[in-house]
Nucleic acid binder design. Structure first.
Lengths: 246, 246
DNA sequence: CAGTGGTCTAGACCACTGG
DNA sequence: CAGTGGTCTAGACCACTGC
């Protein structure tokens, strides 16, 4: 049905790729939202007039990218940052002692400003565009450990306020989903070591000469659209950043 | 054939998982070595008396873990660190300027010693076991940027020497494969920011107060056996550590 | 051209979940 | 129990590679 039956067609991509793209569309245009169950494999194979195996392969790929989550016997669901199991997928910090990290967020301020140079380009904004800068301090097990400055395009994220942020229980990415129906699916981080006394003072580091991890993160939603820039200064005395290479 | 046909069998795992384990065995026992082509799907399905689709699923999983590499029209090959395309799979550094990084390694020393405490446990060694400590400096585009101390169990890696290391062209992991037939398939890194003046001096950092990235890496070969501990001090003024979250 | 992996189908049966 | 995803098969055909 979707297949390129006539051999003159110049472009060609496997059927399951075409299905994958259609599913991706339904995800990004809001037909299915975070946490929703999507139609069953048999329904989808009827809808697209392909075999169940082909739908499976499309779903398999999306599941491996964490966009969908398969649950045997129940169905296939849209991935969400509100699920406890993947709640900390984007938090790479571990405790040196091995203990579980209890995170607490203290929102210091929200400020609307013209997008600073380094931020503007990453978000594809113009000089006229505004961003909201969220400043917050993350405490791990009661100890202030991370200072974050989060930049969001004001147009996409209107009415951000300290009050709203403070009252929400859960991760910021969970909040983006429930408040703006915007889901982050990918992020890239650049990590450096810095000696930043201003950040250190904010984190109440007594010894101002302590080195900090500086992390610049750019987060993307569907169609690889960048929607968040996040700057983080991490104290790594008691916690470290963990990365797995495969 | 492999299937648990009688329903009393207590343990059960899918056929393709069993096949995957058999393939894993052939990889770890040296039946197929790094870079080799493994038998074709039809051969394997005949050998294990299962359908080609079942073999495919087993191979697919191993390919997604980078243990095998599929090449259409040619065959399926054992992954290797000597391939140019995955040569730098375990090097996460990027240049701030975006330029390609040309790496040069200068081996400073090789020293055999009793395994230090922090190393011994990670490698599962006893107090009697020896390790070889390789000290080297990596330069990126001509500039000394990383100081590394690499700890290898002497029993598994006999006769490491500055001369041998210096004469090998390629990555250390490529050398492990060709010299010891030992392939790293996974690694975990712990990253911190430190202010380490000894390392800084070795890297010829003039300003001794510069912060460095300290990376502790543990590398694993088949069957999740840890075989290397690596400590690295990274200057991140011109280069940064990049990480992708998905 | 023969051999390899890649796609697609149709159908059977299993394992798990929830009502 | 009905409905979901998970496994497995057999077979057809396609796309790519190297000789």
């Amino acid at each position: 049905m979707l297949q390129n039956e006539n051999q003159n067609t110049p472009i060609f991509s496997p059927l399951y790729q075409q299905i994958k793209n259609l599913l991706l569309q339904s995800l990004s245009n809001g037909e299915w939202n975070a946490g929703d169950m999507i139609p069953s494999e048999v329904e989808l194979s009827a809808r697209y007039k392909v075999s169940q195996g082909t739908v499976r392969k499309a779903i398999d790929e999306l599941a491996s990218e964490n966009l969908l989550v398969r649950r045997q016997g129940r169905g296939t669901f849209v991935g969400t940052h509100q699920e406890s199991d993947i709640r900390f997928r984007f938090l790479s910090m571990k405790a040196s002692s091995g203990e579980r990290i209890i995170t607490h967020s203290h929102v210091v301020s929200v400020e609307v400003m013209a997008a600073p140079d380094g931020i503007r380009e990453h978000l594809g904004l113009t000089k006229q565009d505004l961003v909201s800068e969220i400043t917050r301090i993350l405490s791990f097990n009661g100890k202030p450990t991370v200072l974050e400055k989060i930049y969001l395009p004001t147009e996409m994220f209107p009415d951000v306020s300290v009050a709203k942020l403070s009252s929400y229980k859960g991760t910021l990415y969970g909040w983006f989903e429930s408040e703006y129906n915007l889901r982050m699916i990918r992020a890239v981080e650049k990590i450096r070591a810095v000696k930043d006394s201003e950040a250190a003072i904010n984190l109440m580091v007594v010894d101002e000469s302590e080195a900090l991890l500086f992390v610049e993160r750019i987060s993307y939603t569907y169609a690889d659209k960048p929607v968040e820039v996040r700057h983080g200064w991490y104290m790594t005395a008691d916690y470290y950043y963990q990365n797995e290479l495969i």
